[in-house]
Amino acid sequence: MNDSAPIAPGTRRRLSTVHTERQGPVLHVTLNRPETGNAVTETTLDELWSVLAWPDETVRVIVLSGAGPDFCLGGDREEFSTLLDKDPTGGGIRISGAKARRVCEAITGHHAVTIAKIQGKAIGAGLALALACDLRIGAETASFRLPELALGLPTAWGGLLPRLLHEVGAARAREIILTSRAIDAEEALSLSILQRVVPEAGLDQATTDWVKPIIRRPDAALRVTKTLMNAYTAAPRLADTSALDAELMASVLAGSHYARHRDAEGSPVRPRRHVHPDV
């Protein structure tokens, strides 16, 4: 099957980091690197884009989920180090950051209603992918965290910051980012990070209960309504500077990479884990 072709009803596509399954008008997209907590790599972003970029009008709902115990533990920090080793100026990080923004914009702007189905942890880039979706449902065990600042990184991935400010509010967003603390499912519900919380055993059924009425809505009315909502919610974000995310992330990482090389006399300290550690 052509990896960039639309996915026909009743078919599955297993890419290297993403798994898709089409059930009628519903497309299930699963981050499929459970051994790394579904850490986001450039390959993940490329494969998500290959799925999202096709304007298949027969897809009415897209459900984004993660394989294994966690939704997504963030960006693959080992890959960040590899990219910086190849280009200490941060060129690879800029390319990856541009892809992240493109994917998140594709999720938000897709004609289909997008639903994030979240279990376990959604950290950093994982939270960004979830916030890009129209609807977010989480298990009672779900938790969220933005550890970037504690790791010496800016909150600059995929347009995360303007979305967080818009959904949560500036005061609460400041506290979440500056403390880097974990947020449980009930607090996430109160902050509108989640719109519904259910027992983990009932997560699939509760997601289906959301999908059923959506796919019964008249197609044209649904598309126009989503377009209107996106337009109105974009108005308060007119000063959105997320186009600079890739440049900001690359600049900070390149600077810290240079300092690490200088301090270690040319011997870089590689991360021991694929994703954000608990700090």
Score class of each variant (00 low, 15 high):
Arg60Phe: 00
Leu178Gln: 10
Pro55His: 11
Asn32Gln: 00
Val29Trp: 03
Glu175Asn: 02
Ala231Gly: 07
Val26Ser: 01
Ile62Lys: 02
Glu21Thr: 15
Gly124Tyr: 11
Val269Met: 03
Thr208Phe: 05
Arg174Ile: 10
Leu178Asn: 04
Asp184Asn: 15
His261Val: 15
Arg33Leu: 08
Arg102Ile: 00
Arg22Cys: 06
Ile93Asp: 01
Gly37Asn: 05
Gly24Asp: 08
Gly159Phe: 01
Leu178Tyr: 12
Asp263Gln: 15
Arg174His: 06
Ala250Ile: 07
Val224Trp: 03
Val51Trp: 06
Gly68Met: 08
Ser190Met: 08
Gly266Lys: 14
Pro271Phe: 06
Gly266Tyr: 14
Pro271Glu: 08
Arg145Pro: 00
Leu238Val: 12
Thr155Tyr: 10
Ile214Pro: 00
Ile118Lys: 03
Glu47Asp: 14
Ala250Glu: 06
Gly37Val: 00
Leu222Glu: 13
Glu47Asn: 06
Ile107Cys: 10
Pro236Met: 00
Leu84Asn: 02
Val269Ala: 10
Val224Ala: 03
Gly169His: 10
Ala231Pro: 02
Ile137Ser: 02
Arg163Ala: 04
Thr207Gly: 07
Ala259Gly: 10
Thr44Ser: 09
Asp3Trp: 04
Arg273Pro: 03
Glu140Thr: 14
Leu129Tyr: 08
Asp134Cys: 15
Ala122Glu: 06
Leu194Trp: 07
Glu140Gln: 11
Thr227Cys: 13
Leu149His: 14
Pro271Tyr: 03
Ala185Glu: 11
Arg237Val: 07
Pro277Phe: 15
Gly159Glu: 07
Ile176Trp: 09
Pro199Met: 15
Lys99Arg: 14
Arg77Ala: 05
Ala221Lys: 13
Pro147Asp: 05
Gly92Pro: 00
Thr108Tyr: 03
Ile118Leu: 01
Pro55Tyr: 13
Glu265Thr: 11
Lys121Ala: 05
Arg14Ile: 15
Gln205Cys: 02
Gly109Phe: 06
Lys86Leu: 09
Leu52Pro: 09
Met249Cys: 12
Gly202Arg: 04
Ala112Asp: 04
Asn38Lys: 07
Gly158Pro: 02
Gly10Ile: 03
Trp54Ile: 09
His111Tyr: 05
Arg33Trp: 04
His274Gly: 09
Asp87Tyr: 05
